[in-house]
Nucleic acid binder design. Structure first.
Lengths: 221, 221
DNA sequence: CGACGCGTTGAATGTTGTCAAACCGAGTGG
DNA sequence: CCACTCGGTTTGACAACATTCAACGCGTCG
């Protein structure tokens, strides 16, 4: 990730122009909100460090966790369709983010084809991610869902040059269950079973993947 | 829906310019593909008449239905992130669509702020729809899922000045089940139960909603 | 120390999936 | 004209997986 907070390849002068509109905020503490459902939509955000959870409240008043965002990833794009946010975003731990005011971004896109294309692509990726999650929820068992999430986090860590076999889950069991459409108890039982099978070593939120191929088999991927 | 196939409010001269790039293709027959997974991504599409099903194949080789599109709705935006389509789109019945070449659309967006904004919004809406589906799959029972789908189609019909209480489902029970993460048998049983409760009258694909508030209660919305 | 949040585990329940059979309408060929 | 098949749908019996409810362990913080 470059100084812009954005994983985008741009010409040097373009970097400067984008750089001017990006705001680097003060660090967030655990449970601080980046934005809340109902807030006016102004910006999209990039994670610089730490991790962010996005969620919305469904018609029944229940929270639905819609994503976990790690450094280098962009969130807040669901608000573009409306003048206000439909979802909330909060820090799962101490975090730093960049804010990219959307009106400025739109202006800049008008003169920078590569930037416009990039934002279309980022949104399209978000759609692809959501559709993968839909498929996961629709077709896969509890074990497959948990295994898939772990492999996803592992792969994203690898991208950031962190260990892909040892890492700390920033979210609670409840968040995992909510995200994967499972109860806390089921998530806990799946972790226990994976430990018994020597696929994982779990110590609270610390995860070590002992058997990557085994976990991939469990994910059925 | 206007002559453009797109539900967009634009200035008159802008309409002309967009109109020039939109292609109206020949009618599609049932089971004709608009595009297939692996095809080069070139365009997004608007439904003019009939209905379209989009689906992808997951890691296990199973089909995942990701959406049903009715007249006035846009599909194919998941391909933007890649040079090739990850999903397929096919006609559930005789249908007519408009094709909007994406490179031309990008060019035009550079000089038409309202168009650029509109496409950002369309993609953002797609994200919001997907997230609603995620919540539905994650939190709701079989009856709630089916009721919610019926109410969604009902509402979309109303938008197009069609009856919101009597309509024909263009998709099979298997497609419904696939979309909602349920087996065909479960979908069928839910329809049967709704009939016994006099909430619906079902005759093959013809649906009549006898008790709208009742269906809303069943959807838990 | 005691309360609380979070996670784990056990036992019972229940919703949905699986397997199997049968139905129905449309289309086909004898 | 009728028997036949075939795809899509419905229904039943049973099994399985995940939920529910309950209890308990553990660490933290007042």
């Amino acid at each position: 990730m470059n100084a812009l907070c954005l994983p985008i390849a741009l010409e040097l002068d373009e970097v400067d122009r984008l750089n001017e509109i990006v705001r680097r905020g003060r660090p967030l503490h655990k449970d601080d909100y980046v934005y809340n459902s109902g807030d006016k939509f102004r910006s999209v955000y990039a994670v610089r460090s730490g991790s962010i959870k996005t969620s919305s409240v469904n018609d029944q008043g229940l929270e639905q966790v819609t994503g976990f965002y790690l450094p280098g990833e962009i969130f807040g794009m669901d608000g573009i369709a409306h003048t206000h946010h439909l979802s909330s975003a909060l820090a799962l731990e101490t975090a730093a983010i960049c804010e990219i005011p959307f009106d400025r971004l739109e202006e800049l896109s008008m003169t920078m084809p590569s930037l416009q294309r990039h934002f279309f692509q980022l949104m399209s990726k978000e759609i692809n991610n959501d559709q993968k999650l839909i498929s996961l929820l629709s077709k896969n068992s509890a074990e497959e869902r948990v295994a898939t999430l772990l492999l996803s986090i592992s792969a994203r860590n690898a991208t950031r040059n962190l260990s892909n076999i040892r890492f700390r889950l920033p979210m609670s069991r409840a968040d995992i269950g909510n995200y994967l459409g499972l109860t806390v108890e089921t998530v806990s039982r799946v972790f226990s079973r994976f430990q018994k099978q020597s696929v994982l070593a779990v110590d609270k939120k610390e995860i070590e993947i002992l058997d990557v191929p085994g976990l991939q088999r469990l994910a059925n991927t």
